[in-house]
């Protein structure tokens, strides 16, 4: 089971900027509806990459409960 500590850890390292910009570029030129669809596809595919059900549940729970400050 994934705990909070491991979710806090940075795993992107030096590639964070490259990832973020690649993701933003993927959205470029899309309508809002198309972007939502792309995000949904991405979540599903990334979930499959993660694979572990406990990890997935834990991530979803943390994201849902995350406080907006």
């Amino acid at each position: 089971m994934m705990n909070d500590t491991s979710m806090m850890t940075d795993k992107l390292g030096a590639n964070g900027d490259e990832f973020y910009n690649f993701l933003m570029d993927a959205h470029e030129g899309l309508s809002e509806e198309q972007s939502h669809a792309l995000n949904a596809r991405l979540v599903l595919m990334l979930a499959n990459e993660v694979g572990n059900i406990d990890t997935l549940k834990s991530v979803i729970k943390t994201a849902v409960e995350f406080n907006h400050e």
Binding site: M7, M8, T9, D10, D17, Y20, F66
Partner: peptide
């Protein structure tokens, strides 16, 4: 959402640019 997560999650802090 990057800004929001970054109050607690170091990986998100590193995405703030």
């Amino acid at each position: 959402e990057v800004l929001n997560l970054s109050s607690k999650m170091p990986f998100a802090r590193k995405l703030i640019n």
